[in-house]
Design a protein around this nucleic acid. Structure first.
Lengths: 212, 212, 212, 212
DNA sequence: AATGAATGAGTGTTCATTCAT
DNA sequence: AATGAATGAACACTCATTCAT
């Protein structure tokens, strides 16, 4: 069996164990057993527990950002792009709960090296949202631009709300990705003030066509 | 030295170590040393690592909810109450970053018993926000009520955004509690759509007078 | 409360705990609590765990040998004296099972100092039996005497059988001291060979009158 | 070095330490060091201190009963079988004093799980003796049978005497297995009463031929 | 390419024992 | 005469990691 395949099996096992038990409570024994290989092989391929964990974070971070990017078409208006991105995000986290636990909980909880790794991914997503907000402002002919730090804060808030809803959707019976995305779009785009007055944001009728 | 005092010293030390190292990486030795007592005394007063951690979570959860409640006056309009609550929340988390790490990260990452403890506090806060949204709807003469699940999702999103901004404010140089609260109020109350069109929500001029 | 009384209370508690938990598993905390005093007081009166245990052994050894001696009248024939001694022995061990556990099990199991203490008592009892056997031989006009070492072995065997029956009687439902003594007298005095042929030893009709 | 061999080495060391120090006073460190291995290996192979102790008890119980059975030929008369069994018993306990300490003292002193393990072996031996007594009664044309409980008591007494003599022989300079067996046969078979009148039981002239 | 065998270092926890009062 | 407060030292157990093959 080629090395690359074995390595993926190990990462699969590691993500599952890390996601469920947590980084420190996870034991290399358990991971090796779940991967169906001997422990020395895990060390031969992945060097150490820290390296293994880092590899998990990197792989899953890449997978998540890729999934979000794949769901968004750059030729559509800003609110549509946000809606598509959120839908993709909620769908991916719902399908890979262990990976989401690794990225959102475990990586941030066990010290700088790992937190930095996860922060890199988060920064990328925040940047994506920040660009979106900037574009939206331009589309609305808003001038002068919002202050840069305020935009950063808004993006931060939006991403935080999304993360929180992802966990909420994962643990609340029967909440779909579309529903979570819809709730968040109403909240973020329209604002509570408008919502109170009966103003709603409605999801576009047709689904986004993934580029390929 | 009386027992009650010693116990608080131990909890202080434990919150600091747990918050910085994480629950599993924290060693009872280190906590005892930081508290300036011997390890057996920690066990005599707090029974076990698990009980010690639980005690930390409970103490800090109580402190946080108390701080938020103390910042809010029930005789003011909904947006003002939200603003005051957020300001208190950001101020408290900024002043007790280790406690915030314990509540927001560590407690959720290390198994049901602890997660449940932190979830209880979070539930309380979400309920607080949920009531606020309901009140706001009534104040805006909105009839019929928003669907219950949608309100739950909105509260979840708002709390998630707040949590995220708390961490952001703690790690970004020079962001004050007022600034974080202001950003979130704009985001949550006005909505991005309005913001893009130049509509802003402005913090009330006078500070809230804590009941006394 | 006078010191002597307190000390006896502590020994009572200690015998109970040592007898039930075992020497090493017994904790000074538990003993102090059961005795209704603070731990430092136990140390003030009895110095250390080892000394406390030794004191227990001594007190119970004395009590046991006293009980046996009290049951035997020197003016009766040898078999009657043996019967009376055994009856007293079984009655005492049945009434003080924790003390018996301390003497027979715990003291012998935890190293020289304690084993020696218990051995001293046992030696006394073995000597008592040895004298009895010698007297019996004389009464039976047996000359020349049995070799000394053989007599020692016989006494050892008899005492061992008695110890074993004491535990057996303590743990078997409904076996009385008289019954245990009767079984042992048959075994020891008559011998299996005779028993097989229907020869029995019968307990004397009247009870022994304790000297007082 | 193959696992099975290492395991026996560990059990050897454990029996020695447990027999000399006692169960609770024995430390896993000491056992591992005496076995010439690291502590984790002891845990890898034997799981826990309790399991290790249980394994010791089981191994030595099996060895002892095997030795006794191997010394007895079922085609010989009852007294001869008893004599052979006792000789084998005393020889084995004399050669393995630590094992005898584990079985007779330690196992009975440290709680139900271990006591039950040792009791199982003892029950087997008592049953063996009980059958012997029954056979002897039949051989002596004794009819009707002795009451069942009396037989149980007799077997108990005999076994207790043997156990006691085993320890006596182990601690008294120059007492051989034959001598101990001889003393006990006289005591048990002939009875003190007959002994006093000069009646002796004599060991058979030729040694028993072990079946193969 | 892969593993059975083995360990150094460290953890949570307990307990006999002692001050200071 | 008696105790609340405190600890040094030790122990069972675990785990990431590495040889030798």
């Amino acid at each position: 069996m080629p090395r690359a395949v074995r390595e993926q099996q190990m990462l699969d096992a590691a993500v599952q164990i890390f996601g469920q038990r947590g980084y420190m409570a996870a034991s290399m024994d358990e991971i090796a057993e779940l991967a169906g290989v001997s422990k020395p092989l895990v060390y031969l391929y992945l060097n150490s527990k820290e390296d293994l964990f880092t590899a998990c974070i990197r792989r899953e971070a890449t997978a998540l950002t890729r999934a979000v990017r794949a769901g968004v078409r750059t030729d559509l208006p800003a609110d549509r792009r946000l809606w598509d991105g959120l839908t993709a995000f909620f769908a991916h986290t719902a399908e890979h709960p262990d990976a989401w636990s690794v990225l959102h909980l475990q990586a941030r909880t066990h010290g700088e090296p790992f937190a930095a790794e996860a922060a890199a991914m988060r920064t990328e997503i925040v940047a994506f949202v920040t660009r979106l907000v900037a574009v939206a402002a331009r589309e609305a002919h808003r001038d002068p631009d919002l202050p840069e730090r305020e935009v950063a804060g808004l993006a931060e808030a939006l991403v935080g709300a999304a993360e929180s809803l992802a966990t909420w959707a994962n643990t609340t019976e029967g909440v779909t990705a579309r529903e979570a995305a819809s709730t968040l779009m109403n909240f973020a785009w329209t604002g509570l003030g408008n919502l109170m007055r009966g103003v709603h944001w409605s999801p576009p009728s047709g689904e986004a066509q993934p580029p390929a």
